[in-house]
Design a protein around this nucleic acid. Structure first.
Lengths: 156, 156
DNA sequence: ATATTATTGATTTTGATTTTCATTTTCAAT
DNA sequence: ATTGAAAATGAAAATCAAAATCAATAATAT
């Protein structure tokens, strides 16, 4: 279904349909979580040992350009890609302890957006909302095994 | 005023008060815009030619740890720091054309946050809201001089 | 003043990302 | 099926912000 979209896109752009691209996209769309290039690369290696990192990397960019993937970066500043799936906008809660990323949908924010944007005569194309904190599990064991230890967690 | 806070912080931590730190903080707090390390470094050079990049870099990190600065990254993925000033949380609209960053304050979002967080048993420490789009000026001249040209601007 | 300890700043290293380039593959037109 | 032009691949190297290293210097407590 979405793979059709990619082929259409490639055709339109005069790009070529290759085995690598097909396999990468197949695997990518199957999953409903975030992929770092690294992660996807490793997964691809299993079925396509010869595949190169750069190819995975470039295909992921291609997917973004084609609108099939969205790139996100959280605190660790590593690019992660997720399928634009049903294209529903969603936002993220990121656990500062275990790194878990919880997705949520938001229905009230659009209104809020419009208010502000209008006030500044700003035309909004996209937006991003991220909540940082502690997930249910980590709330309990708040004091052990921190990953992102700083000093005074900046709360602003 | 805030410089007091830093000294207190340094004392508490057993760190030292140095000329560099004092000057950097002074300059940093004076300004009410975002600084990249690079930018602040260049500005410092003018009055303190001998200062090193690493010192500015480290001091900025110190300020974050002390709660006097907040680090942000927008699309270009370069760390920018801003004074936590009166510590009012604010969010950003980023113009995809000219790169301008417009700050705004938001009073309704906290409620929204709580709703979602509660539903997932998530304890929110901080949050970030960014709107990407076109500022008033750039809306008019939408088609010239784009900087962040991609293919299909990903809108999700 | 001195000893202790942290800081500085030049430099190097890291690590994710991006580019390069020789080789291989795709695909449209024979 | 074959060919040729254009694009893709993959290994390696380049990039570049960020982080770490370390000898020389400066700040603090005694």
């Amino acid at each position: 279904m979405h793979e059709m979209d990619l082929k259409k896109y490639l055709k339109k752009k005069g790009f070529k349909v290759t085995t690598q691209r097909e396999k990468i996209v197949e695997r990518f769309l199957k999953r409903d979580r975030h992929f770092s290039v690294e992660e996807l690369y490793k997964e691809m290696k299993r079925t396509m040992p010869g595949i190169g990192f750069a190819t995975v990397y470039r295909t992921l960019q291609l997917l973004v350009a084609a609108g099939l993937a969205t790139e996100r970066r959280f605190k660790d500043n590593i690019a992660r890609f997720e399928p634009s799936h049903m294209n529903r906008h969603h936002d993220h809660m990121i656990c500062l302890n275990c790194g878990r990323i919880i997705e949520f949908e938001n229905h009230k924010i659009e209104k809020l957006q419009n208010d502000v944007a209008e006030k500044h005569n700003f035309y909004t194309v996209s937006y991003k909302l991220e909540l940082y904190g502690y997930c249910e599990e980590c709330k309990k064991k708040r004091l052990i095994g921190r990953k992102n230890e700083r000093d005074g967690l900046n709360t602003s």
